[in-house]
Amino acid sequence: MSENPPTPPGRPEDPYGQEPERPTPPQQPYQPPQQPYQPPQEPYQQQAGGQQPPGQQPFYANAASSAAGVARDDTKGLLGSLFDFSFNNYVTPKIVKIVYVIVTILIAIWWVIAFIASFVTLFSDQWYIGLLGILFSWIVALVYLAIWRIGLEVFQAVVNISEKVNHYARRDGIA
Protein backbone atom coordinates (compact mmCIF):
# COMPACT_ATOMS: atom_id res chain seq x y z
CA MET A 1 0.00 0.00 0.00
CA SER A 2 1.03 3.63 -0.59
CA GLU A 3 2.22 5.81 2.27
CA ASN A 4 0.75 9.01 0.79
CA PRO A 5 -3.00 9.32 1.21
CA PRO A 6 -4.91 10.61 -1.83
CA THR A 7 -5.61 14.35 -2.05
CA PRO A 8 -9.26 15.25 -1.61
CA PRO A 9 -10.79 16.85 -4.71
CA GLY A 10 -10.86 20.64 -4.83
CA ARG A 11 -7.88 21.16 -2.51
CA PRO A 12 -4.51 21.32 -4.19
CA GLU A 13 -1.70 20.71 -1.80
CA ASP A 14 1.95 21.54 -1.99
CA PRO A 15 4.07 18.41 -2.39
CA TYR A 16 6.52 19.87 0.14
CA GLY A 17 3.91 20.09 2.88
CA GLN A 18 3.40 23.85 2.86
CA GLU A 19 0.03 25.51 2.72
CA PRO A 20 -0.73 27.34 -0.54
CA GLU A 21 -0.92 31.12 -0.25
CA ARG A 22 -4.38 32.56 -0.40
CA PRO A 23 -4.93 35.82 -2.28
CA THR A 24 -5.76 38.75 -0.07
CA PRO A 25 -9.07 40.50 -0.75
CA PRO A 26 -8.94 44.12 -1.96
CA GLN A 27 -8.87 46.76 0.74
CA GLN A 28 -11.69 48.84 -0.74
CA PRO A 29 -14.70 47.49 -2.56
CA TYR A 30 -15.28 48.47 -6.20
CA GLN A 31 -17.04 51.77 -6.66
CA PRO A 32 -18.74 52.61 -9.95
CA PRO A 33 -17.70 55.86 -11.67
CA GLN A 34 -19.57 58.99 -10.61
CA GLN A 35 -20.54 60.06 -14.15
CA PRO A 36 -21.63 57.76 -16.96
CA TYR A 37 -19.31 57.45 -19.96
CA GLN A 38 -19.87 59.95 -22.74
CA PRO A 39 -18.17 59.53 -26.14
CA PRO A 40 -16.04 62.45 -27.36
CA GLN A 41 -17.80 65.09 -29.41
CA GLU A 42 -17.34 65.09 -33.19
CA PRO A 43 -15.48 68.10 -34.62
CA TYR A 44 -18.48 68.68 -36.87
CA GLN A 45 -22.03 67.44 -37.03
CA GLN A 46 -23.12 65.67 -40.19
CA GLN A 47 -26.36 66.66 -41.80
CA ALA A 48 -28.91 64.21 -43.06
CA GLY A 49 -27.60 62.28 -46.04
CA GLY A 50 -24.01 62.25 -44.73
CA GLN A 51 -23.17 65.80 -45.89
CA GLN A 52 -21.44 68.40 -43.78
CA PRO A 53 -22.74 71.86 -43.00
CA PRO A 54 -21.52 74.55 -45.41
CA GLY A 55 -18.14 76.04 -44.51
CA GLN A 56 -16.99 73.10 -42.40
CA GLN A 57 -14.51 70.45 -43.46
CA PRO A 58 -13.72 67.11 -41.86
CA PHE A 59 -10.73 67.06 -39.51
CA TYR A 60 -8.64 65.11 -42.02
CA ALA A 61 -9.11 67.61 -44.87
CA ASN A 62 -6.01 69.62 -43.92
CA ALA A 63 -3.83 66.52 -43.81
CA ALA A 64 -5.05 65.43 -47.23
CA SER A 65 -4.43 68.83 -48.78
CA SER A 66 -0.98 68.95 -47.18
CA ALA A 67 -0.10 65.53 -48.60
CA ALA A 68 -1.39 66.57 -52.01
CA GLY A 69 0.86 69.62 -51.88
CA VAL A 70 3.91 67.39 -51.65
CA ALA A 71 3.23 66.13 -55.16
CA ARG A 72 5.96 66.89 -57.66
CA ASP A 73 5.83 70.21 -59.49
CA ASP A 74 6.75 69.49 -63.10
CA THR A 75 6.93 73.06 -64.32
CA LYS A 76 10.08 72.43 -66.37
CA GLY A 77 10.56 69.68 -68.89
CA LEU A 78 13.50 67.34 -69.24
CA LEU A 79 15.78 69.82 -71.02
CA GLY A 80 14.72 72.65 -68.72
CA SER A 81 15.62 70.53 -65.69
CA LEU A 82 18.94 69.47 -67.25
CA PHE A 83 20.02 73.10 -67.68
CA ASP A 84 18.63 74.35 -64.35
CA PHE A 85 21.85 75.53 -62.70
CA SER A 86 20.06 76.55 -59.51
CA PHE A 87 19.04 72.91 -58.92
CA ASN A 88 15.49 73.87 -58.00
CA ASN A 89 14.03 71.13 -60.23
CA TYR A 90 15.23 67.56 -60.08
CA VAL A 91 15.96 65.73 -63.31
CA THR A 92 16.06 62.24 -61.77
CA PRO A 93 12.26 61.67 -61.71
CA LYS A 94 12.07 62.62 -65.38
CA ILE A 95 15.04 60.61 -66.59
CA VAL A 96 14.87 57.45 -64.45
CA LYS A 97 12.20 55.81 -66.64
CA ILE A 98 14.18 56.52 -69.80
CA VAL A 99 17.37 55.10 -68.27
CA TYR A 100 15.54 51.96 -67.15
CA VAL A 101 14.08 51.36 -70.62
CA ILE A 102 17.53 51.82 -72.21
CA VAL A 103 19.17 49.48 -69.67
CA THR A 104 16.44 46.86 -70.23
CA ILE A 105 16.94 47.00 -74.00
CA LEU A 106 20.74 46.76 -73.68
CA ILE A 107 20.52 43.78 -71.30
CA ALA A 108 18.05 42.04 -73.65
CA ILE A 109 20.41 42.61 -76.60
CA TRP A 110 23.32 41.26 -74.53
CA TRP A 111 21.27 38.18 -73.60
CA VAL A 112 20.34 37.46 -77.23
CA ILE A 113 24.00 37.77 -78.29
CA ALA A 114 25.11 35.54 -75.39
CA PHE A 115 22.44 32.96 -76.26
CA ILE A 116 23.48 32.85 -79.93
CA ALA A 117 27.16 32.63 -78.98
CA SER A 118 26.38 29.82 -76.54
CA PHE A 119 24.40 27.98 -79.19
CA VAL A 120 27.29 28.28 -81.66
CA THR A 121 29.74 27.12 -78.97
CA LEU A 122 27.59 24.02 -78.44
CA PHE A 123 28.91 22.58 -81.72
CA SER A 124 32.59 23.12 -80.91
CA ASP A 125 35.08 21.30 -78.71
CA GLN A 126 33.95 23.32 -75.67
CA TRP A 127 30.29 22.31 -75.86
CA TYR A 128 29.87 22.43 -72.07
CA ILE A 129 30.49 26.21 -72.07
CA GLY A 130 27.74 26.62 -74.67
CA LEU A 131 25.39 24.47 -72.58
CA LEU A 132 26.09 26.55 -69.46
CA GLY A 133 25.51 29.73 -71.46
CA ILE A 134 22.16 28.50 -72.74
CA LEU A 135 21.01 27.33 -69.32
CA PHE A 136 22.20 30.23 -67.16
CA SER A 137 22.61 33.38 -69.29
CA TRP A 138 19.00 34.42 -68.63
CA ILE A 139 19.69 34.33 -64.86
CA VAL A 140 22.68 36.62 -65.29
CA ALA A 141 20.55 39.00 -67.37
CA LEU A 142 17.83 39.11 -64.70
CA VAL A 143 20.37 39.72 -61.94
CA TYR A 144 21.86 42.68 -63.84
CA LEU A 145 18.39 44.05 -64.52
CA ALA A 146 17.49 43.75 -60.82
CA ILE A 147 20.71 45.52 -59.77
CA TRP A 148 20.00 48.39 -62.15
CA ARG A 149 16.39 48.60 -60.96
CA ILE A 150 17.41 48.72 -57.29
CA GLY A 151 20.01 51.39 -57.99
CA LEU A 152 17.55 53.56 -59.91
CA GLU A 153 14.94 53.14 -57.16
CA VAL A 154 17.49 54.31 -54.58
CA PHE A 155 18.15 57.46 -56.60
CA GLN A 156 14.41 58.02 -57.02
CA ALA A 157 13.76 57.54 -53.29
CA VAL A 158 16.48 60.02 -52.33
CA VAL A 159 15.01 62.62 -54.69
CA ASN A 160 11.48 62.00 -53.36
CA ILE A 161 12.68 62.49 -49.79
CA SER A 162 14.51 65.67 -50.77
CA GLU A 163 11.44 67.04 -52.53
CA LYS A 164 9.24 66.39 -49.50
CA VAL A 165 11.74 67.91 -47.08
CA ASN A 166 12.06 71.01 -49.29
CA HIS A 167 8.28 71.30 -49.54
CA TYR A 168 7.83 71.12 -45.77
CA ALA A 169 10.69 73.58 -45.24
CA ARG A 170 9.04 76.09 -47.60
CA ARG A 171 5.64 75.50 -45.95
CA ASP A 172 7.07 76.11 -42.47
CA GLY A 173 9.08 79.13 -43.59
CA ILE A 174 12.48 77.55 -42.97
CA ALA A 175 13.78 77.78 -46.52
Rank of each mutant, 00 (worst) to 15 (best):
A64D: 09
Y100K: 15
P43W: 06
A48Q: 15
T24W: 11
S81R: 15
V120T: 09
T121R: 08
D74Y: 11
P32H: 08
D84N: 09
P39E: 14
A108Q: 02
Q57L: 15
S137M: 08
G130A: 04
G130C: 05
T121N: 13
S81V: 05
D73N: 14
Q52A: 12
I134E: 01
P53M: 12
G69W: 05
V101C: 03
V101R: 12
Q57T: 12
A61W: 12
T92Y: 07
F119W: 09
I105R: 06
I129G: 00
T75R: 15
Q57I: 04
S65Y: 03
A71D: 10
G80I: 06
S81D: 11
S86M: 06
S86A: 14
G130W: 06
R72M: 12
S137K: 05
S65N: 12
I98S: 09
E42T: 07
P23F: 09
G77S: 05
Y44P: 00
Q41D: 09
V101Q: 14
P32R: 11
Y44H: 10
I129M: 14
V112G: 02
Q126E: 10
K94T: 06
I116S: 02
G133I: 02
E21D: 12
I102P: 00
G49Q: 04
Q28I: 04
W127Q: 08
I107W: 10
T24A: 13
L82Q: 10
F83T: 14
Q34T: 07
